[in-house]
């Protein structure tokens, strides 16, 4: 079962999580050339903060700033955990 948070609208991003054998981050972004690495860093740090290592994460980004990416991922993580319980 996968969960998602956010939206594919300007300045926002849509993040989807689903259980997986290992950690995988797939980044689609209108600013991937300029900020792809930064987006990946924020995602991986946030996941590490929750000790999440077995998940497939897909982000569809339309220019979200770091705080938005982090917030959307936090929401998705909580929704995933709520689903597990």
């Amino acid at each position: 079962m996968n969960v998602s948070a956010g939206s594919y609208e300007s300045n926002d991003c849509l993040i989807t999580l689903e259980p997986a054998a290992e950690l995988e981050c797939i980044i689609h972004s209108v600013v991937k050339e300029q900020f792809g690495e930064q987006i990946e860093l924020v995602l991986k740090q946030t996941l590490a903060g929750h000790n999440i290592t077995h998940v497939k994460l897909v982000i569809n980004d339309k220019g979200a700033l770091d705080y938005t990416i982090k917030a959307r991922l936090e929401t998705a993580i909580r929704r995933m955990r709520d689903l597990d319980e």
Partner: peptide
């Protein structure tokens, strides 16, 4: 401050 510095292409 908002965007961070974009990577030089």
């Amino acid at each position: 401050k908002y965007t961070k510095q974009p990577k030089k292409l």
